[in-house]
Design a protein around this nucleic acid. Structure first.
Lengths: 369, 369
DNA sequence: CCTAACGCTGACATCGTTGTCAATTGGGCA
DNA sequence: TGCCCAATTGACAACGATGTCAGCGTTAGG
């Protein structure tokens, strides 16, 4: 109530000292200072404070000085969102990032790259975890949009992303990472899943393996489908009957993968080589092979790198993705779109690399065939 | 310009069909729908839309229906920040999290725990990386505050956090994680660094080691100081001359740590046991020991767990922190403060656990004493 | 000396939403 | 029938900032 009396800025003329005091008291109080507080303390209009805070021209050096001093003394921080409401460009300088899980190393690297690109432009990043839950996906996107992010970088899992169509029409840049969108057209940045999986599979076949098993994520995840296809295609090219190859899907963490691997070796005629189609799956396989004492006797290639994979015994051979590049490119596309690039949606495919570290170079057991 | 004519809501009376059409056209256009658009389309006042969107009582079922239908057809998402400007509680339902680096596994686990707690309350999380750079710390905090986050969870590195005093006075909850604040009083959640380091050191001494080396982070980081103290205290308790023990500080990533370890073994009378005071440091040590072929010949205990540490050969013995608990407790404290808890600032110490996996149980080489 | 131009400044409307408050409606009860 | 009360609804101001614009004083040019 009382602070509102400051509105009468003519008071500044008479007894400036008195006003200063009450403003200073405000600074000590629990209320957050606004531009009006700064303006009153500096003895200028709010618009002038706005000009100084935003570095606009046509303010005298002396006034700038007074305003900055007042702002500092009140510990003033401008309210970005209030400004945004009125500002012409309507930018919140905020970005929404949705990844598999913020504590997955792949996601961490993507996140870090996005953050680096964003920081350079003074943009803050909201990060959320998807947990492969379609409801979570939509809730996260909605939470981002309500906060009026300037752009979205999304890993998705729901059937299709048609719900984003209106937002895309409004011009909000959306870049899909790791997984491609369905039902809408927009930029995406993905690894070459099919080729990478084929590369891994070919590598195993080249070591002489004929009994290969595929262990992968949920079949309704498009990325998983592509990796599976790469695996099967390559078997086909090598003339290996794909019907025989154990295909185990629906794995989503170390534990389910570990159990599936144990079960695999519990059956008859276990594989001599395994393709782990995702980092957590690969780790689960490694654990199981250790338990069975077969880590030097069963070949393994993983898709996506595994932390400290080079220090294990044997080293884990993987088809490594480049999550840092994926994040960087995704962020660059968002910013390019924000800067007005309206070229057609583009799909950027980031190449994968085979890292031979030992586990993928193991030869088939002699007893097997 | 034309959209502004909607303001005249009396138009709804005459030719409702015409208005509907123009609103529908708006939906297809690039402009983002506001409550006024929804209100016009539904034929009600904006305040009624506000009531429906916020689930306030005293709206007839029929009206609710009409408003929701209009909102859906326009793909309306409320502007949280505009609402916030006016809303009494002034909450943005947003939180700022500052961690060492979002791609560090420790930080990832903290982040995930914070996110889980926040999600349950409909709160979104800004995440930033500190990179042990004091300027970055302050820039990140300022970015958070300009966006009016409801609370802060911070890992800090600057000399002191006195710059936060005005914000704390205004009642913004701030919880420090991993490192304690200096110059201000506020909640903090940390591991028991001194005790954990002492535990690690004692364990090595119990295996008979007398020549122990400490490899750690920058000495100006308080957490690093505490771990160093725990190490030295324990040497003292065991009657080992602390002056002789190699103390290598200023390490901040795998590479610097690896080189420091190599140098250590290049000198004369290398240690028989090493304490790696941080996860990246520990990894660097492991790499160096591998290169030297001394991984089975030099004991190692790390502070903070290492990914797949149990799968290495030898397994990496560590004093594990509980980053998930740290994040969860920190988030809970923020929310408790927001809910009005004004008890004195509290320091929560999360216990550490010694995980014996092999590397810490190696005995001293016979040639060394 | 007059006028135009420029630099500097603040009053005011406005952004999208919610708090306040008053107006309207309909139903129940005397 | 008449009155009161509760439920429903919308007009309006306000939140903290910026865009627009007009007004001031000074200086330069004719």
């Amino acid at each position: 109530m009382t602070p509102l009396s400051d509105t009468d800025s003519t008071e500044t003329e008479r007894g400036g000292g008195h006003v200063d005091e009450s403003v200073a008291a405000d600074a000590r109080s629990k209320s957050r200072p606004t531009m009006r507080h700064v303006a009153t303390l500096a003895g200028v209009g709010v618009k002038t404070v706005s000009r100084v805070i935003n570095g606009e021209p046509n303010v005298s050096a002396a006034t700038i000085e007074r305003v900055l001093k007042a702002a500092r003394s009140l510990d003033y921080e401008p309210d970005l969102h209030a400004g945004n409401l009125r500002r012409a460009d309507g930018r919140t300088r905020t970005l929404g990032l949705l990844v598999g899980s913020v504590d997955n190393p792949f996601a961490g690297a993507v996140h870090r790259a996005v953050e680096d690109a964003a920081l350079a432009r003074g943009v803050a990043v909201f990060a959320s975890s998807l947990d492969d839950d379609p409801e979570r996906e939509q809730a996260a996107v909605s939470a981002f949009l309500r906060r009026r992010v300037d752009g979205l970088i999304l890993t998705t899992v729901s059937e299709n992303q048609a719900y984003l169509a209106p937002e895309l029409r409004r011009g909000t840049p959306v870049v899909f990472v790791d997984r491609q969108p369905a039902g809408v057209t927009s930029d995406s940045v993905v690894s070459d899943n099919t080729a990478g999986a084929a590369l891994a599979t070919r590598h195993l076949i080249e070591q002489g393996h004929r009994r290969l098993a595929y262990l992968g994520d949920r079949h309704d995840i498009r990325t998983a489908q592509e990796r599976r296809r790469g695996f099967l295609d390559e078997l086909g090219r090598a003339g290996i009957a794909t019907g025989d190859a154990p295909l185990i899907e629906g794995l989503h963490d170390e534990e389910t993968s570990r159990r599936a691997t144990l079960a695999l070796f519990d059956g008859e005629n276990p594989p001599t080589a395994i393709f782990g189609a995702q980092n957590l799956v690969t780790i689960g396989v490694i654990r199981a092979l250790r338990e069975l004492g077969r880590q030097l006797d069963t070949a393994l290639v993983g898709f996506d790198d595994v932390p400290l994979g080079d220090l294990l015994e044997p080293g884990v051979t993987v088809v490594a993705q480049d999550p840092h590049a994926i994040g960087r490119i995704a962020a660059e596309r968002v910013f390019a779109r924000l800067d007005g690039d309206d070229s057609p949606a583009e799909r950027t495919i980031v190449p994968t690399r085979l890292l031979q570290r030992g586990s993928g170079e193991l030869l088939p057991r002699v007893d097997a065939r």
